[in-house]
Amino acid sequence: MALSILALAGCSGAIPRTGPTKGEIFDSAVQKAGNTYVVEASQPVARATFYSPAMGFSSGFRNAGEIQPDIIHSGDTLGLTIWENVDEGLLGVGGAPVPLERVQVDSSGMIFVPYAGRVLAAGKSPEELRGLLTRKLETQTPDPQIVVTRSAGDGATVSVSGKVSAQGVYPIQRPTLRLSSMLARAGGVTIEPEIAQVTVLRGSQSGKVWFDSLYANPSNDIALRAGDRILVEADERFYTAVGATGRQSRVRFETQELSAIEAIAQVGGLSGIAADPTGIFVLRQEPPEVARRVLGLSNITSPQQVAYIFNLTSADGLFVARNFNIRDEDTIYVTEAPVTQFNKAVAAIFGSLSTVAAVQTVSAR
């Protein structure tokens, strides 16, 4: 009977389990004509696997200077007030000021002013436009006095959406010329700053940075342009933990960098009654440039399946797991200890994991 139990424990399909054994994963390695490279995790391997997908703004974003908020743009709304130095003027009588409110700058950058006609306003400051209108009107009325005001930024606006306190369309003004100040104008982010990502869309270009890098790296605090779209989102990266862990689940990153040991802790650690601490795997699709470094193979040109194995029964193994970074869409798989399979076999025959004494009694008969 004891031999039957051992045979049952050794039969992979005879008893339930959480997944493949450590030996079965090694059997599927490239070295044994499989499709997965199995690599023992070490400090050099942890360094070689360090890879962070590019984030940041291109030079086009970073090198763009601050706009002049007083410059008139298409879409702006202007206010004109005109005084004429005669009792019977072109636009009014008795020398009273003539207000022209909400004069819209059209898509061509033009405005229409009576007796001055269509005038190019876009690209000029209010003072430059005042001078131009004065010259056009003074040929018809003596010494006209004109005041030009601009509803600040009506044409030079950005949209802010996502995880901010007040989503909306905001004018670019002197206090909000740069990304960080515009986010502050929108009430700041409503999620943990460490996991907040900021995307800026400008025409066909886009760039993404971590929110806190706006302050850690001033070059990321870019100058804004009219029409920019700003989106604040939480970090969407995740990893999956399966096998003999405290909790099997799909887990969001809670920090910008996450080590293997931290990822295991996030799901409740290893199962004390089932896990094999010498058979912990991190499974991932490595990009070719990382695969070449890790495997020492210069001819790799495509992504490769790699299974990194950790042994947490030594201090060195724990330090390796602490220095090994988990990446987006990684899978952490913890194999079951051989004794767990034996106990399941015992339970399958005797109905209890605590019947070892009964096994000995039966085998003695």
Rank of each mutant, 00 (worst) to 15 (best):
I191G: 00
E257D: 07
Q31N: 03
F61V: 10
M182R: 03
E262H: 05
G65I: 12
I222K: 01
S298W: 02
A337K: 03
R202I: 09
A14Q: 14
T313Q: 15
N299A: 12
T255W: 06
T335L: 05
P175L: 03
F350V: 01
E257V: 05
T141L: 04
L312D: 00
P142I: 13
D154I: 00
R130G: 06
N299G: 07
G13W: 08
L297F: 04
A260F: 11
F61P: 03
R252G: 02
G317Y: 08
D235R: 09
V158K: 10
S298D: 12
V242H: 00
A166L: 03
P277H: 15
L91V: 11
S352F: 03
A156G: 02
N85S: 15
S180K: 15
P53G: 07
V160I: 15
G131R: 15
R292C: 00
V103Q: 02
A184E: 06
T278R: 14
Q266V: 14
G246C: 11
A2P: 00
P126S: 13
I72C: 08
P287S: 06
D221H: 12
S206F: 06
S159M: 08
N63P: 01
V232I: 09
Q197E: 02
N85D: 15
D87A: 14
G269C: 15
D235W: 07
L297G: 04
T245H: 02
T301W: 00
P175M: 01
I230E: 00
G123V: 11
G23K: 14
V200F: 09
I273Y: 13
P97Q: 10
Y170N: 02
T36A: 13
M55D: 04
I349K: 06
L90Q: 10
D106W: 03
V242S: 01
C11H: 05
T331S: 06
